[in-house]
Simulated assay, not measured.
Amino acid sequence: MATPINLNKHRKEKARAEKRKAADANAVKFGRSLAERRLDQARAEKSARELDGKKRE
């Protein structure tokens, strides 16, 4: 005879796994660390400054 399972526990565990899967997908899609975002921003600002410095009047 098989051991009985708690269906509520199984349902909640399945929902948690789906949420974890969605969270991992979002982390890959949107997740960048603060340091990476600041580095990109600093690079963009530097290139803008260099471009402004090379403009002729």
Rank of each mutant, 00 (worst) to 15 (best):
Q41L: 13
D40L: 07
L39I: 12
N26R: 15
A15M: 10
E57L: 14
K46E: 10
K14Y: 08
G53K: 00
H10L: 14
T3K: 13
K54R: 13
K19M: 10
P4F: 09
A35Q: 15
E45I: 03
L34P: 07
R16Y: 09
P4K: 04
R20P: 00
P4G: 07
F30E: 07
N8W: 02
K12H: 07
R56A: 10
K19T: 05
K21N: 04
E57V: 14
K46W: 05
R16A: 12
L39Q: 15
A23M: 10
A17R: 10
D24T: 07
K14W: 05
R20D: 13
L51D: 01
R37S: 08
R32M: 11
R37M: 14
N6D: 13
K9H: 10
L51R: 00
N6V: 01
A48G: 04
K12T: 10
N26Y: 11
A44W: 01
K14T: 11
G31T: 06
E50Q: 08
V28G: 08
E18N: 06
V28T: 13
A35R: 13
A44V: 05
A23H: 06
Q41I: 03
K12W: 05
A17Q: 14
R32F: 08
K55N: 07
K46V: 02
E36I: 04
K14N: 08
K21A: 12
F30V: 10
K54V: 05
L34R: 15
V28I: 15
F30T: 12
A44R: 06
K19C: 07
S47N: 13
E36P: 01
E18T: 04
L34S: 14
A15S: 08
K9T: 11
V28K: 15
N6P: 00
I5K: 04
E18F: 02
A2I: 11
A22N: 04
A2Y: 07
